[in-house]
Design a binder for these strands. Structure first.
Lengths: 124, 124
DNA sequence: CCAATATGACTCATATATAGATCACAAAAT
DNA sequence: ATTTTGTGATCTATATATGAGTCATATTGG
Protein backbone atom coordinates (compact mmCIF):
# COMPACT_ATOMS: atom_id res chain seq x y z
CA UNK A 1 0.00 0.00 0.00
CA UNK A 2 3.01 2.29 -0.11
CA UNK A 3 3.89 2.80 -3.71
CA UNK A 4 4.85 6.42 -4.18
CA UNK A 5 7.27 5.91 -7.07
CA UNK A 6 5.08 3.54 -9.00
CA UNK A 7 4.01 5.82 -11.78
CA UNK A 8 7.34 7.47 -12.17
CA UNK A 9 9.01 4.11 -12.49
CA UNK A 10 6.52 3.06 -15.10
CA UNK A 11 7.24 6.19 -17.09
CA UNK A 12 10.93 5.42 -17.02
CA UNK A 13 10.55 1.75 -17.71
CA UNK A 14 11.65 2.03 -21.30
CA UNK A 15 15.07 3.41 -20.46
CA UNK A 16 17.56 0.62 -20.05
CA UNK A 17 21.26 1.04 -19.85
CA UNK A 18 21.92 -1.22 -22.79
CA UNK A 19 25.58 -1.68 -22.00
CA UNK A 20 27.77 -3.65 -24.33
CA UNK A 21 30.06 -6.42 -23.14
CA UNK A 22 32.82 -8.14 -25.01
CA UNK A 23 32.33 -11.59 -26.38
CA UNK A 24 34.86 -13.11 -24.03
CA UNK A 25 33.17 -11.52 -21.09
CA UNK A 26 29.78 -12.92 -22.03
CA UNK A 27 31.19 -16.36 -22.69
CA UNK A 28 33.00 -16.44 -19.39
CA UNK A 29 29.87 -15.55 -17.46
CA UNK A 30 27.81 -18.07 -19.36
CA UNK A 31 30.32 -20.81 -18.73
CA UNK A 32 30.51 -19.98 -15.06
CA UNK A 33 26.74 -20.12 -14.84
CA UNK A 34 26.60 -23.50 -16.50
CA UNK A 35 29.35 -24.87 -14.30
CA UNK A 36 27.37 -23.74 -11.29
CA UNK A 37 24.22 -25.38 -12.57
CA UNK A 38 26.09 -28.56 -13.35
CA UNK A 39 27.67 -28.69 -9.93
CA UNK A 40 24.33 -27.97 -8.30
CA UNK A 41 22.64 -30.84 -10.07
CA UNK A 42 25.51 -33.21 -9.41
CA UNK A 43 25.10 -32.42 -5.74
CA UNK A 44 21.35 -32.85 -6.06
CA UNK A 45 20.41 -29.41 -4.87
CA UNK A 46 17.24 -27.85 -6.15
CA UNK A 47 17.34 -24.19 -7.06
CA UNK A 48 15.63 -23.34 -3.80
CA UNK A 49 18.10 -25.40 -1.80
CA UNK A 50 21.10 -23.63 -3.24
CA UNK A 51 19.49 -20.23 -3.12
CA UNK A 52 18.72 -20.70 0.56
CA UNK A 53 22.23 -21.83 1.31
CA UNK A 54 23.65 -18.80 -0.44
CA UNK A 55 21.17 -16.46 1.19
CA UNK A 56 19.75 -15.25 -2.11
CA UNK A 57 16.42 -15.59 -3.85
CA UNK A 58 15.65 -18.26 -6.37
CA UNK A 59 15.17 -15.70 -9.13
CA UNK A 60 18.66 -14.36 -8.56
CA UNK A 61 20.12 -17.84 -8.70
CA UNK A 62 18.34 -18.38 -11.99
CA UNK A 63 19.95 -15.25 -13.41
CA UNK A 64 23.33 -16.38 -12.18
CA UNK A 65 22.99 -19.79 -13.81
CA UNK A 66 21.98 -18.10 -17.04
CA UNK A 67 25.19 -16.09 -16.97
CA UNK A 68 23.49 -12.75 -16.50
CA UNK A 69 26.27 -10.21 -16.40
CA UNK A 70 24.34 -7.75 -14.28
CA UNK A 71 24.46 -9.97 -11.22
CA UNK A 72 26.47 -8.92 -8.24
CA UNK A 73 29.94 -10.41 -8.33
CA UNK A 74 29.83 -11.42 -4.68
CA UNK A 75 26.64 -13.41 -5.13
CA UNK A 76 28.05 -15.27 -8.10
CA UNK A 77 31.33 -16.02 -6.35
CA UNK A 78 29.54 -17.15 -3.23
CA UNK A 79 27.29 -19.54 -5.08
CA UNK A 80 30.25 -20.90 -7.02
CA UNK A 81 32.15 -21.43 -3.81
CA UNK A 82 29.25 -23.25 -2.19
CA UNK A 83 28.98 -25.78 -4.98
CA UNK A 84 32.73 -26.28 -4.91
CA UNK A 85 33.90 -24.34 -7.93
CA UNK A 86 37.30 -22.84 -7.31
CA UNK A 87 37.78 -19.52 -9.01
CA UNK A 88 41.45 -19.13 -9.85
CA UNK A 89 41.90 -22.88 -9.44
CA UNK A 90 43.64 -22.35 -6.14
CA UNK A 91 42.69 -22.82 -2.54
CA UNK A 92 42.33 -20.08 0.02
CA UNK A 93 45.86 -20.12 1.33
CA UNK A 94 47.32 -19.88 -2.12
CA UNK A 95 45.06 -16.94 -2.88
CA UNK A 96 46.54 -15.02 0.02
CA UNK A 97 50.01 -15.70 -1.26
CA UNK A 98 49.08 -14.46 -4.69
CA UNK A 99 47.54 -11.33 -3.22
CA UNK A 100 50.83 -10.58 -1.51
CA UNK A 101 52.77 -11.24 -4.68
CA UNK A 102 50.54 -8.82 -6.57
CA UNK A 103 51.05 -6.23 -3.86
CA UNK A 104 54.80 -6.59 -4.18
CA UNK A 105 54.73 -6.18 -7.93
CA UNK A 106 52.45 -3.15 -7.71
CA UNK A 107 54.83 -1.57 -5.22
CA UNK A 108 57.60 -1.71 -7.80
CA UNK A 109 55.62 0.31 -10.32
CA UNK A 110 55.17 4.09 -10.23
CA UNK A 111 52.36 5.10 -7.93
CA UNK A 112 50.72 7.34 -10.47
CA UNK A 113 50.68 6.66 -14.18
CA UNK A 114 50.94 9.49 -16.66
CA UNK A 115 51.31 9.59 -20.36
CA UNK A 116 54.99 10.51 -20.74
CA UNK A 117 55.11 11.12 -24.51
CA UNK A 118 52.36 10.00 -26.82
CA UNK A 119 51.83 6.34 -26.12
CA UNK A 120 48.34 5.80 -27.42
CA UNK A 121 47.82 2.08 -27.85
CA UNK A 122 51.28 0.76 -27.14
CA UNK A 123 52.17 -2.68 -25.89
CA UNK A 124 50.05 -4.87 -28.10
CA UNK B 1 17.99 21.67 -6.24
CA UNK B 2 15.85 18.62 -6.84
CA UNK B 3 16.24 16.37 -3.89
CA UNK B 4 12.86 14.91 -3.02
CA UNK B 5 14.10 11.66 -1.50
CA UNK B 6 16.88 13.23 0.47
CA UNK B 7 15.36 13.01 3.90
CA UNK B 8 13.87 9.60 3.37
CA UNK B 9 17.22 8.29 2.23
CA UNK B 10 18.91 9.80 5.24
CA UNK B 11 16.43 8.11 7.50
CA UNK B 12 17.15 4.78 5.88
CA UNK B 13 20.89 5.31 5.62
CA UNK B 14 21.63 3.09 8.57
CA UNK B 15 20.03 0.04 7.00
CA UNK B 16 22.59 -1.84 5.00
CA UNK B 17 22.14 -5.35 3.82
CA UNK B 18 25.19 -6.53 5.71
CA UNK B 19 25.54 -9.71 3.74
CA UNK B 20 28.21 -12.18 4.69
CA UNK B 21 30.59 -13.67 2.18
CA UNK B 22 32.89 -16.61 2.60
CA UNK B 23 36.59 -16.07 3.08
CA UNK B 24 37.46 -17.66 -0.23
CA UNK B 25 34.99 -15.44 -1.98
CA UNK B 26 36.46 -12.30 -0.51
CA UNK B 27 40.01 -13.38 -1.25
CA UNK B 28 39.16 -14.21 -4.84
CA UNK B 29 37.63 -10.80 -5.44
CA UNK B 30 40.52 -9.05 -3.78
CA UNK B 31 43.05 -10.94 -5.85
CA UNK B 32 41.18 -10.23 -9.05
CA UNK B 33 41.12 -6.54 -8.18
CA UNK B 34 44.81 -6.45 -7.53
CA UNK B 35 45.58 -8.33 -10.73
CA UNK B 36 43.53 -5.76 -12.60
CA UNK B 37 45.36 -2.89 -10.97
CA UNK B 38 48.70 -4.51 -11.67
CA UNK B 39 47.86 -5.10 -15.32
CA UNK B 40 46.56 -1.56 -15.65
CA UNK B 41 49.77 -0.06 -14.32
CA UNK B 42 51.93 -2.34 -16.42
CA UNK B 43 50.06 -1.08 -19.46
CA UNK B 44 50.44 2.46 -18.21
CA UNK B 45 46.77 3.27 -18.07
CA UNK B 46 45.54 5.78 -15.55
CA UNK B 47 42.33 5.00 -13.72
CA UNK B 48 40.47 7.41 -15.98
CA UNK B 49 41.94 5.80 -19.10
CA UNK B 50 40.77 2.35 -18.16
CA UNK B 51 37.44 3.52 -16.85
CA UNK B 52 36.75 5.30 -20.12
CA UNK B 53 37.73 2.28 -22.16
CA UNK B 54 35.42 0.08 -20.11
CA UNK B 55 32.62 2.63 -20.24
CA UNK B 56 32.41 2.95 -16.48
CA UNK B 57 33.11 5.68 -13.99
CA UNK B 58 36.39 6.09 -12.19
CA UNK B 59 34.76 5.51 -8.83
CA UNK B 60 33.44 2.17 -9.97
CA UNK B 61 36.86 1.16 -11.23
CA UNK B 62 38.28 2.04 -7.85
CA UNK B 63 35.79 -0.24 -6.17
CA UNK B 64 36.63 -3.02 -8.58
CA UNK B 65 40.36 -2.71 -7.93
CA UNK B 66 39.65 -2.85 -4.21
CA UNK B 67 37.82 -6.12 -4.68
CA UNK B 68 34.44 -4.79 -3.66
CA UNK B 69 32.10 -7.75 -3.88
CA UNK B 70 29.05 -5.64 -4.58
CA UNK B 71 30.27 -4.63 -8.02
CA UNK B 72 28.45 -5.89 -11.05
CA UNK B 73 30.05 -9.04 -12.41
CA UNK B 74 29.90 -7.82 -16.00
CA UNK B 75 31.81 -4.65 -15.20
CA UNK B 76 34.54 -6.58 -13.40
CA UNK B 77 34.86 -9.15 -16.16
CA UNK B 78 34.92 -6.46 -18.81
CA UNK B 79 37.68 -4.52 -17.12
CA UNK B 80 39.66 -7.69 -16.59
CA UNK B 81 39.28 -8.59 -20.22
CA UNK B 82 40.42 -5.15 -21.37
CA UNK B 83 43.66 -5.34 -19.42
CA UNK B 84 44.25 -8.84 -20.72
CA UNK B 85 43.36 -11.01 -17.76
CA UNK B 86 41.89 -14.26 -18.91
CA UNK B 87 39.25 -15.61 -16.59
CA UNK B 88 39.27 -19.37 -16.85
CA UNK B 89 42.73 -19.27 -18.40
CA UNK B 90 41.30 -20.08 -21.78
CA UNK B 91 40.63 -18.11 -24.94
CA UNK B 92 37.22 -17.41 -26.37
CA UNK B 93 37.02 -20.40 -28.67
CA UNK B 94 37.89 -22.76 -25.89
CA UNK B 95 35.26 -21.19 -23.70
CA UNK B 96 32.61 -22.01 -26.26
CA UNK B 97 33.75 -25.60 -26.32
CA UNK B 98 33.57 -25.81 -22.57
CA UNK B 99 30.09 -24.33 -22.59
CA UNK B 100 28.98 -27.08 -24.94
CA UNK B 101 30.61 -29.72 -22.80
CA UNK B 102 28.79 -28.40 -19.76
CA UNK B 103 25.54 -28.47 -21.67
CA UNK B 104 26.11 -32.09 -22.60
CA UNK B 105 26.81 -33.09 -19.05
CA UNK B 106 23.79 -31.22 -17.76
CA UNK B 107 21.64 -33.01 -20.33
CA UNK B 108 22.63 -36.33 -18.83
CA UNK B 109 21.37 -35.37 -15.39
CA UNK B 110 17.71 -35.33 -14.36
CA UNK B 111 16.03 -32.12 -15.37
CA UNK B 112 14.50 -31.55 -11.98
CA UNK B 113 16.22 -32.45 -8.76
CA UNK B 114 14.19 -33.80 -5.89
CA UNK B 115 15.20 -35.19 -2.61
CA UNK B 116 14.64 -38.89 -3.19
CA UNK B 117 15.26 -40.27 0.30
CA UNK B 118 16.93 -38.28 2.98
CA UNK B 119 20.19 -37.10 1.45
CA UNK B 120 21.03 -34.14 3.62
CA UNK B 121 24.65 -33.24 3.09
CA UNK B 122 25.82 -36.18 1.03
CA UNK B 123 28.82 -36.27 -1.28
CA UNK B 124 31.46 -34.69 0.85
C1' DC C 1 -1.30 -42.67 -13.78
C1' DC C 2 -1.06 -39.13 -10.31
C1' DA C 3 0.30 -36.18 -6.91
C1' DA C 4 4.00 -33.47 -5.46
C1' DT C 5 7.47 -30.38 -6.54
C1' DA C 6 11.08 -28.36 -9.62
C1' DT C 7 11.65 -25.16 -13.01
C1' DG C 8 10.86 -21.15 -16.24
C1' DA C 9 9.11 -16.82 -16.97
C1' DC C 10 7.13 -13.13 -15.62
C1' DT C 11 5.73 -8.66 -12.14
C1' DC C 12 6.47 -5.05 -8.70
C1' DA C 13 8.38 -2.51 -4.71
C1' DT C 14 12.30 -1.60 -2.57
C1' DA C 15 17.25 -1.91 -1.62
C1' DT C 16 21.44 -0.78 -3.58
C1' DA C 17 25.06 0.08 -7.25
C1' DT C 18 26.66 3.48 -10.46
C1' DA C 19 27.82 8.01 -12.56
C1' DG C 20 29.40 12.22 -11.75
C1' DA C 21 30.98 15.61 -8.98
C1' DT C 22 34.05 17.63 -5.53
C1' DC C 23 37.93 17.87 -2.48
C1' DA C 24 42.60 17.28 -0.66
C1' DC C 25 46.74 15.42 -1.42
C1' DA C 26 50.61 12.99 -3.89
C1' DA C 27 53.80 12.53 -7.26
C1' DA C 28 55.54 13.00 -11.67
C1' DA C 29 57.29 16.11 -15.39
C1' DT C 30 59.45 20.24 -16.84
C1' DA D 1 60.15 24.84 -7.45
C1' DT D 2 56.15 24.90 -9.85
C1' DT D 3 52.74 23.07 -12.51
C1' DT D 4 50.14 19.37 -14.02
C1' DT D 5 47.92 15.23 -13.45
C1' DG D 6 46.89 10.90 -10.90
C1' DT D 7 44.95 9.00 -6.93
C1' DG D 8 42.02 8.35 -2.66
C1' DA D 9 37.95 9.39 -0.49
C1' DT D 10 33.88 11.14 -0.03
C1' DC D 11 28.61 12.59 -1.34
C1' DT D 12 23.95 12.51 -3.96
C1' DA D 13 20.49 11.51 -7.50
C1' DT D 14 19.29 8.26 -10.43
C1' DA D 15 19.45 3.75 -12.70
C1' DT D 16 19.06 -0.91 -11.81
C1' DA D 17 19.45 -5.41 -9.27
C1' DT D 18 17.26 -8.09 -5.84
C1' DG D 19 13.57 -10.44 -3.07
C1' DA D 20 9.26 -12.01 -3.02
C1' DG D 21 5.58 -13.15 -5.15
C1' DT D 22 2.47 -15.52 -8.98
C1' DC D 23 1.36 -18.54 -12.68
C1' DA D 24 2.00 -22.18 -16.03
C1' DT D 25 4.31 -26.19 -17.36
C1' DA D 26 7.40 -30.09 -16.86
C1' DT D 27 9.06 -33.93 -14.59
C1' DT D 28 9.98 -37.10 -11.26
C1' DG D 29 8.87 -40.62 -7.51
C1' DG D 30 5.62 -43.60 -5.97
Amino acid sequence: MYRPFREWNNLMTLRKKERTYSRYCRDAAQLLGKLIQLARKERRFSESDLADRAGISRSTLQRIEKGDLTCEMGLVFEVATIVGIKLFEADSRFLTMQIERADDKIALLPKTIRKSDKNLDDDF
